[in-house]
């Protein structure tokens, strides 16, 4: 009986230590959606190649997305987005680097859904702004899903909207993040 207990204890120790060792998660195929519909016509786009790294120990999270990788339904919209609005030739990347302020409340070793308060800096179109978002961290079978919705203002990032299309494009953009992160084997 005692040996079984001992074995169990050793096994438990082993599990926890190996779980602790896994403190970095990443993806290169995360998804980011945005919607800036102002009128009847839907203006939304999807990026399926977002790179994201999460350091669960330090509570640090980073995203990097190439603006040319956003797919629109209409080619003309995509061209206007790249050429006139975000000027992706000049500013190809948008990045976010932030911290999960309530990281201690998230148990990355235990399956569950946790609320994550994220605070950090978003850089796009040559401008850097503080952004805060309430996201969701889902831990399942050793993998992590990071999801969040938040709004930004185009004017904060000096993205100018010509007055002719002012009623079609919303200055307030809703951004949705959905990244399935795998453990980073080092």
């Amino acid at each position: 009986m005692q040996t079984t207990m001992k074995n169990l204890l050793v096994a438990l120790l082993f599990i926890t230590s190996s779980a602790q060792a896994q403190d970095k998660f990443f993806t290169k195929t995360g998804k980011i959606y945005f919607d800036c519909t102002g009128g009847i016509e839907k203006i939304e786009a999807t990026n399926k190649s977002t790179t994201c790294v999460l350091d669960s120990k330090a509570g640090l999270i980073q995203f990097s997305v190439l603006l040319k990788g956003f797919e629109f339904e209409k080619a003309l919209m995509e061209e206007h987005f790249n050429e006139n609005y975000v000027e992706s030739d000049k500013f190809p990347k948008a990045t976010f680097a932030g911290t999960i302020t309530n990281n201690s409340e998230i148990n990355y070793a235990k399956d569950g859904v946790y609320t994550a308060k994220v605070k950090g800096k978003l850089t796009m179109h040559g401008e850097t702004k503080d952004v805060e978002a309430i996201g969701k961290v889902t831990v399942k079978k050793g993998a992590v899903v990071a999801a969040a919705d938040f709004n930004i203002l185009l004017s904060d990032f000096k993205v100018a909207i010509p007055s002719v299309v002012k009623d079609k494009i919303n200055n307030k953009v809703t951004i949705t993040v959905d990244c399935q992160l795998d453990p980073l084997k080092s």
Binding site: K24, F26, K28, S49, T51, V53, Q62, S64, L66, L67, K68, G69, E71, S88, P92, K93, L184, S186
Partner: peptide
């Protein structure tokens, strides 16, 4: 596919990627 850019890795963990779309 359509070339969308290069994501250089500044973390030193992931490697850098040439990204193509569609």
């Amino acid at each position: 596919g359509v070339f969308t850019g290069f994501n250089s890795d500044d973390t030193g963990l992931l490697g850098s990627d040439v990204k193509l779309n569609l």
